[in-house]
């Protein structure tokens, strides 16, 4: 924009300030309340803790088995991420480098599953998991494996789409030269394409991890006491009569750190990938 007048500059300042407050207030509430003693969060709201305490950060692990939920979430999100990234790399390689029958149908179908409401799969998947478990003994319902299978497909469509974009931007001459040199197609993928697309692959991995780490609907139905993830476990700080809000806030902060840190570190790649499709 050229020579914005003072009125515009002031509008801009005020608007961005208000927006920053709106955006950050929950984060500040989370931070300040996680350092409060219990009586501070049981009375009228206050910004500054009456006494600064780190007790909530110690207590969160005892009030509910947060450690176990954390490990479960790590296993589920990590497993889903690894599987999803590997499957997406293979599929994106095929779509980017080969012209074959059904190429368009494949991409459109996969992308359109993204629009279906989760609730539509939830009931049948629940029934299928329960019945498969009863007839074959493979425990999918209530298991981390079942959740990994489910979550990897949530990030798959977008991951494939983003990676196709990344792979397309790698010059074909590079992998064709590798093919001439006697690499097989898989050799070309592993030696040329994957190293060249590392930023894209990392972005996809962060996206897949965030998707699995934050999922609530399936986690609330498909897990039991031993496989419960953070998404459901965090509600355990509310008892019949009381909610330990200081501990809830501390736990929220602790579970946010891994994904927020990853997101902010890799923001640039992720943003490029997330928006590439929409701009195209």
């Amino acid at each position: 924009m050229i020579n914005p007048p003072a009125s515009f500059r002031w509008t801009r300042r005020i608007f961005l300030l208000v927006l920053a407050v709106f955006t950050l207030v929950p984060v500040l509430v989370m931070l300040s309340s996680s350092l409060k003693p219990l009586q501070d969060v049981q009375g009228p709201f206050r910004w500054i803790p009456s006494t600064l305490t780190f007790r909530p950060y110690v207590d969160i692990w005892k009030t509910v088995p947060l450690g176990r939920y954390f490990v479960n979430s790590l296993i589920v999100a990590g497993g889903a991420t690894v599987c999803s990234v590997v499957i997406a790399i293979l599929a994106a390689y095929a779509v980017s480098r080969y012209r074959f029958k059904g190429r368009r149908v494949f991409t459109v179908t996969v992308l359109s599953t993204q629009m279906f409401p989760g609730i539509l799969f939830l009931l049948p998947l629940f029934i299928i998991f329960v019945n498969v478990g009863d007839s074959t003994g493979i425990a999918l319902y209530g298991s981390r494996g079942g959740l990994i299978l489910t979550y990897l497909t949530f990030s798959l469509p977008f991951s494939i789409w983003m990676l196709v974009g990344y792979f397309d931007s790698i010059p074909r001459d590079l992998d064709e030269a590798a093919l001439v040199d006697g690499c097989g197609p898989i050799g070309a993928l592993v030696r040329i394409i994957i190293p060249a697309a590392i930023p894209g692959i990392v972005a996809v991995a962060v996206y897949a991890f965030m998707t699995a780490w934050g999922e609530v609907l399936f986690a609330s139905v498909m897990t039991n006491d031993t496989t419960r993830t953070l998404a459901v476990g965090l509600q355990g700080y509310a008892t019949q009569t009381d909610v330990y809000w200081n501990q809830v806030m501390a736990a929220s902060l602790v579970v946010s750190v891994p994904v927020v840190a990853g997101f902010l570190l890799l923001q640039r790649y992720l943003v490029a990938g997330l928006t590439a499709g929409a701009v195209k």
Binding site: P26, V29, M30, A231, S252
Partner: peptide
């Protein structure tokens, strides 16, 4: 970037 449940519970 924040996980849904952490943000919404806040």
């Amino acid at each position: 970037a924040l996980p849904v449940y952490a943000a919404v519970i806040t």
